[in-house]
């Protein structure tokens, strides 16, 4: 398996506060990799830094052999890396279809139309509601829209930040099924989650993040049965 994303000794500061204290991790082609950790551990900061929204103070980020440091966030998408951000951040006043079109902003019209059909197949609900204003969708539908929108750029690697946040358990199951399906269809996934149980059960590999450091890593299965992980994140 080829290494897709390689992050080395990454450090990120918010002013004088160091949020990420030198973490290294990698994502290989075809994997689902998850990063679990409590609030404030630095999971979203890591995602946002890889996507170019935050500037690291030190360290390297390589995607498909190319350094992403200093590349403007709107150009990172062109490299084949897409972030589905925390809190969904769909465009509330745009329609479902317009949101998806924005996802394909860097693509040609033909590519966008083709991908749109795939996204509709994955999320039939979005097809039913394509004319609806996105802000009026339910929480689960909004999450689907956010994921569909991120898929529209045809990413090689999709980063998902807390896709299960605020969703009912049945919807969480559904979202995770879709994540596995997207992965099977050829998209590599980097998943950040507070729902460690779910995340670890679908992940090939996982990293545990604690106050800006990676404190544990291994296969999803191993970490599910790891004592310290069970105590901290899985409730015994």
């Amino acid at each position: 398996m080829a290494t897709m994303l390689k992050v080395n000794d990454l450090k990120v500061h918010y002013g004088s506060i160091q949020a990420i204290k030198g973490i290294s991790f990698e994502v290989n082609e075809g994997e689902i990799v998850t990063m679990i950790g409590a609030n404030g551990a630095g999971k979203s900061t890591t995602m946002n830094t890889v996507a170019g929204l935050l500037k690291p103070t030190e360290g390297s980020i390589e995607f498909l052999g190319k350094s992403l440091i200093g590349i403007a966030p709107h150009k990172v998408v062109n490299e084949g890396l897409s972030l589905c951000p925390e809190g969904r951040r769909i465009f509330q006043h745009l329609t479902v279809l317009e949101n998806l079109e924005m996802g394909a902003y860097t693509r040609t019209k033909e590519e966008a139309d083709e991908t749109l059909q795939k996204v509709y197949n994955l999320f039939p609900r979005l097809k039913e509601r394509y004319k609806q204003i996105a802000g009026t969708l339910s929480g689960g539908e909004q999450q689907m829209l956010a994921m569909g929108r991120a898929l529209m750029s045809r990413p090689r690697l999709m980063m998902l930040d807390e896709p299960s946040m605020g969703l009912a358990p049945i919807l969480v199951d559904q979202i995770f099924d879709i994540i596995v399906n997207m992965n099977k269809a050829g998209t590599t996934i980097l998943l950040v989650e507070q729902n460690a149980q779910m995340a670890l059960s679908v992940a090939d590999r996982a990293y545990v993040l604690e106050t800006g450091n990676i404190v544990n890593s291994g296969s999803g299965k191993d970490l599910l049965s790891d004592d310290s992980v069970r105590r901290a994140y899985l409730g015994g």
């Binding site: 998408v77 317009e98 924005m102």
Partner: peptide, 24 residues
């Protein structure tokens, strides 16, 4: 138009618009 829709997207959420590849 694509540019026009991108404008509306930017007006709503600059960060998310950047993630779409829109040059804010």
């Amino acid at each position: 138009t694509k540019m026009g829709k991108a404008m509306r997207a930017v007006s709503e959420d600059k960060g998310a618009a950047q993630l779409m590849g829109i040059n804010v």
